[in-house]
Simulated assay, not measured.
Amino acid sequence: MEKVAIDDVENSLQPAAVMRHLTEPLGLADFAMNYYELEPGDSFAFAYHRHEVQEEVFYVQSGTATFQTEAGEIEVSSGEIVRFAPGEFQRGWNRGDEQVIALAFGAPLKYGEQVKLRECPTCGEATDNEIERRSAADASGGEVAVTICKNCGTETGKWTKGSMSGEVP
């Protein structure tokens, strides 16, 4: 048995105000579990994406999350659950005025190949991106996450903890 207090798990650098990876602290071997708190405008992910082998399930505990999908936008409200099959593109946002609290589950634990689509100003279209983590260039000593177009190397987004600079929902 493993027991974890969510507030005791370190906040991860993500496009969400709070994102806590619970997989490792709980010793999970067969699926991933993450806790999210999204402020208005925050997102669950860095990009519109899909996982080759992992299915994802989001349980919205409070607020309303809006997911961008190939079929259009879908709202998932408090007490509702949404599942995305392997290979299905999605990205969830908090487009409302109140905080969203949610849990995300993924199985199997491995993603397989991931495709992360973001608009690239140089290429003029949505392209596959990679995510790089770097040390902040300022004196903060913090970490920065940057999305980079795989086609041309252009930076398409940048995040620091508590900041969504470069992000357009």
Results as ranks from 00 to 15, higher is better:
T127R: 10
G166F: 07
G92C: 12
Q90T: 12
P169Q: 14
N34E: 02
G63V: 13
Q90D: 11
V100C: 03
E24D: 11
L26I: 10
G124Q: 05
A16P: 02
A136F: 09
G106Q: 00
V144P: 07
Q14V: 09
L117T: 05
R50E: 12
E119G: 09
K116I: 03
M33N: 03
H49W: 13
C120T: 02
V4D: 10
T66V: 15
L13I: 06
G87D: 13
F84T: 08
S163N: 03
G141N: 08
T160F: 00
R95A: 11
V168F: 12
E98C: 04
A71P: 02
V144H: 13
E75C: 03
A16I: 14
S78W: 00
F89G: 09
E113A: 08
A65S: 09
E132I: 11
K3G: 04
A102H: 01
A16M: 07
S163T: 15
P40C: 09
G157H: 08
N129L: 06
V168T: 14
L13C: 13
I74T: 15
N151P: 00
K150W: 02
I148S: 03
P40F: 00
E130L: 06
T154I: 04
Y111C: 00
V9T: 00
G142Y: 06
M19A: 05
S165T: 10
P121N: 09
F84C: 11
E10Q: 14
N11R: 11
V144K: 01
K158Y: 14
E24M: 08
Y36I: 12
N129Q: 01
A85S: 10
G153R: 02
Y35V: 04
S62G: 09
T122P: 00
N34T: 01
K158G: 01
F31D: 00
P25Y: 11
G157C: 09
G124C: 05
I148A: 02
K110G: 01
F44W: 12
T147V: 04
Y111P: 07
C120D: 03
V76C: 08
E132D: 06
E55W: 09
K150L: 07
T66Q: 08
G41P: 14
T154A: 12
E37Q: 12
E125Y: 07
W159E: 06
S62M: 01
Q90F: 15
Y59R: 10
T69S: 14
Y59L: 12
E132H: 07
N11A: 04
Q99P: 04
S140W: 10
T160W: 13
T127Q: 02
Y36R: 02
S43E: 15
V57Q: 13
Y111D: 07
D7M: 01
E130V: 03
F105L: 06
E55Y: 15
L26R: 01
A5R: 15
Y111G: 00
C149D: 04
S135G: 10
K116P: 07
K110I: 02
N129V: 09
G112V: 03
V18T: 13
T23S: 08
A139P: 05
W93S: 08
R20W: 13
K158T: 06
E73H: 10
E37T: 08
E155L: 06
D30E: 11
F44Y: 14
W93H: 15
R134P: 00
S77K: 15
M1A: 14
V76W: 15
Q61E: 07
C152I: 04
A107M: 04
E113P: 00
R118F: 06
G72P: 12
G72W: 15
S140M: 02
F84Q: 14
T69F: 14
E132P: 00
E167S: 11
D97W: 07
